[in-house]
Design a binder for these strands. Structure first.
Lengths: 220, 220
DNA sequence: ACATGTGAAAAAATTCACAGCA
DNA sequence: TGCTGTGAATTTTTTCACATGT
């Protein structure tokens, strides 16, 4: 029957872990669509991702009814539904602050565009990169942050500056009205409650794997 | 009174989320040490990271007793203890497969070394980069994977190849005896149970922020 | 007085299991 | 028959609250 509410059925809070899996479902479903699959069952989808059929169904149930009993889910339809839920049915303009090693790589990463994010500007404090174009993105001075964000209607930003500069960059973003930040600097930053924040620390991922390897049987 | 078991007190399984927070505690404690702080309480540490005092204490309690009633935790001592727990008190040699955009950036990222990971070799299938040196790391052909891993006693690997190649790279790594993989390719890969795997998808992080911004009040 | 470590209680997430629909 | 959606049961994680150590 597939009735798509893009908002939770009530106003139940949605656990972060559920939203995270939603992104995984989306990525997998996009593969399936590109391979020509019409439909998939919760069990088959779960198996590909290493979770249970019940979990797939429960996760989706937070947002509506998308499946067809006896059939499963129509891949293309569910892709659209999840993009609506995540808010990526339209393209988001994003700014990148920090055009060092990591910033450059992120600017060149094609995966963002594929999922509906367009990096419309890069900013840095280093005068030697300001004015250049990196991976087709023009680099402005950090002082232009406010202007650029307003001109381009930017709501999301990424931070890829050295750790000591991250907090002040975040502060500037907040003043410029940013609504969400992905922080790649290896430091905890604090921002007001009304701004969303995710920290991604590449070294931490390696630490997690090291732990898992050393304590192979103690982790779940 | 600071009795450091590097293994869980019993054989209780340790939740993944706990280990993840351990890495955050470590990073924060390293900052504190470099700022000259001697001790910190569970409450103060939790506040910096956005979690409760009880959570900090419970997390650490999985591994032993590290605190001093009335005092808190000695920062330097706890840094050492957590590194022991995570298994990063010694340097891990790591290989990187894929020397494209993202691979290059990761090779140049200084944060790995700081946390005890040394990238000892990079590998790629593209003959035009094989034999070059990127960020002081020599690039070998992917066919050398087995030899390099054995020569350098490598147990951990990172994947930064295009999505379609990721699974076969993982398979090769498994055959070469890898024990843990961090996969930066935006695709689900499957590996035998005895190998640990973490997937990091940069676009997914942006999706999570987009969702949080759109549904500001439904997430927890 | 201050702050840990930890059982007990509460809350949250996952899994089970089954009614109901195609 | 095959598979969804969902209450109920179970398991896991977090929070509470306090006895204990300094």
């Amino acid at each position: 029957m597939s009735e798509a509410n893009q908002k939770p059925t009530d106003n139940q809070p949605v656990p972060k872990a559920v939203v995270n899996r939603l992104s995984l479902y989306l990525r997998e479903l996009q593969h399936l669509v590109s391979e020509g699959s019409e439909t998939i069952s919760s069990g088959a989808l779960g198996q590909r991702l290493g979770c249970s059929d019940a979990q797939v169904r429960k996760d989706l149930a937070y947002f509506g009814q998308f499946g067809y009993p006896g059939i499963g889910y129509r891949c293309a339809e569910l892709v659209d539904a999840i993009r609506k839920i995540l808010g990526t049915q339209f393209v988001w303009p994003v700014v990148m602050v920090g055009v060092g090693n990591l910033g450059r790589a992120l600017l060149g990463y094609k995966g963002f565009a594929k999922q509906g994010f367009h990096i419309v500007a890069a900013l840095d404090s280093n005068r030697s990169v300001v004015g250049t174009t990196v991976e087709d993105v023009h680099v402005d001075h950090i002082d232009e942050l406010d202007r650029v964000m307003k001109e381009k209607r930017v709501r999301l930003a990424m931070i890829a500056v050295p750790a000591p500069a991250a907090q002040q960059v975040a502060d500037r973003m907040v003043r410029a009205g940013v609504e969400g930040i992905v922080n790649f600097a290896p430091v905890t930053i604090s921002i007001p409650d009304h701004v969303s924040l995710i920290g991604v620390d590449l070294a931490i991922e390696l630490e997690q794997i090291a732990f898992a390897v050393v304590n192979r049987n103690h982790t779940r």
